[in-house]
Design a protein around this nucleic acid. Sequence first.
DNA 1: CTCTTTATATGATCATGATCATGTAAATTC
DNA 2: GAATTTACATGATCATGATCATATAAAGAG
Lengths: 191, 191
Amino acid sequence: MRVSREQMAENRERILDTASTMFRERGFDGVGVADVMKAVGLTHGGFYGHFSSKDDLAAQALGRAFVHSNRWAAEAKSAEPEAPLQAIVSRYLSPSHRDDPGQGCPVAALGCDIARQGEASRLAATEGVRAAIAGLSAIEPGATADERRTSAIANYATLVGALVLSRMVDDAALSDEILAAAGAALQSAEA
Amino acid sequence: MRVSREQMAENRERILDTASTMFRERGFDGVGVADVMKAVGLTHGGFYGHFSSKDDLAAQALGRAFVHSNRWAAEAKSAEPEAPLQAIVSRYLSPSHRDDPGQGCPVAALGCDIARQGEASRLAATEGVRAAIAGLSAIEPGATADERRTSAIANYATLVGALVLSRMVDDAALSDEILAAAGAALQSAEA
DNA sequence: CTCTTTATATGATCATGATCATGTAAATTC
DNA sequence: GAATTTACATGATCATGATCATATAAAGAG
């Protein structure tokens, strides 16, 4: 049965948001088109009216995840204007972020998979990473713009790597230790 | 047709090594049992004489990848005893490592996927990470063992994150920049 | 050298999942 | 309000891939 134009637009948004979360939780290959549609409350048949393929969905959902992620960083930043970097670091390396990949950083959740995805997804990810680096560079201490950019990239890498390691490991104590160690190193680097 | 006991043992080794490489290159879901067997020069039928399931293979292949990876680090270390950490960092962040995931660090190649794998793979990865941290701690400067362990973990995270980001991004210049920035940050931290 | 065992090959099976075909009812259009 | 679209549902299709069943020839036991 047909639905109104705005209902359709809303459905499309829901599909994107849902897919964005599900992909981060289960990986691109762990989620089927039908799974996403079902989670949205629709059936698989209507999918190709919204997207041309699963890859198309993946790329757009990934783009959305990056937008949310970078918005999240901006919010952390403005919530504590005196220590924006500390705010981002401590939220990024929090157990709640580790335990909720579906709402978290797409790089930590899907980074290795993205490297093997099609061009559209790679491009969306590239833009997302560029934006993240720019956002971090803006709040990084350092004399020159180059210095700030270099440490922004290095800190970004540390955040991503620590989150990946902490999620990978099957030992809660080690996982917590990894988050704490990366956090400590990033704090002390702000000398 | 039957083969000798040693031939069989060698086949098993080849399956493990091949799978270890292929999984790192294409991800767990990107490689089928039949693909691995074919790459070894066998057919899919014999697979279950060697392993109880694909998951079983994945866990064992992952364990093997970690062993090789940690051995690789030890070699880099002993190749340049005056600056072991620098040796590891520069090899880890080299373009050749980035461009050859099949022979490289399993965390960077499969980290996000491992977090969603079964218990056996998670355990193998946990042991591998523990060993890597221990290895890095041993060459990390720092007054106390705690300090050395903390910076080992943070540096490990930086290496992993930088490699993941550099592989993800669809822009050669940005990819190189990420490797270089992480390398620079890790060098200057050795003050 | 014969008998038994077994590592692999060949060929199912069975489930999952992407994509397409068709129908229908509700929204738009006129 | 009738005619026309069209978003979605239902139900194929078709390929892929894990796993199992059976056959066979070569290895190892006696």
